[in-house]
């Protein structure tokens, strides 16, 4: 069983909505898919929405952090949106601060933030 996370393109931006709990394989597959898609489309920004996700452990946090760094290397900006309060609290307690990550409350705010960042 292999699930793939769909990656949508909207103008210069890639939109990813993670709808179900990530297992390790799916997370790694996602990393690869996103980078490939970035290369193919030369997108300038990515929004990853995590609204339905109710927990993130250190492994998934690492994969996400890596994705953000790699995307940065390829010259694009990433905004993470919809991190739930419970998820934020557990991440902080785990000691994962995700310091250099742009965040927004939801997809709408996230796109606003990204466009502003791209204009600047």
């Amino acid at each position: 069983m292999k699930t793939r996370i769909p990656i949508l393109k909207l103008n210069d931006v890639l939109i990813v909505s993670i709808q179900w709990e990530l297992d390790d394989q799916t997370a790694i597959q996602f990393q690869e898919d996103l980078l490939t898609k970035m290369h193919e489309t030369s997108a300038l920004g990515v929004v990853i929405d995590l609204t339905p996700i109710d927990f993130i452990d250190s492994f998934i946090a690492k994969v996400l952090g890596d994705v953000i760094n790699m995307t940065g290397l390829m010259g694009a900006k990433v905004v993470i949106t919809g991190i739930q309060p419970a998820v934020a609290i557990t991440l902080i307690e785990l000691g994962i601060r995700m310091e250099n990550v742009m965040t927004a409350l939801d997809l709408e705010n996230g796109l606003d933030k990204l466009y502003k960042e791209l204009e600047a």
Partner: peptide, 12 residues
Amino acid sequence: IQAADAVRLVGA
């Protein structure tokens, strides 16, 4: 500080 970090994660 922890509270402020968590607030940043949810996007504020």
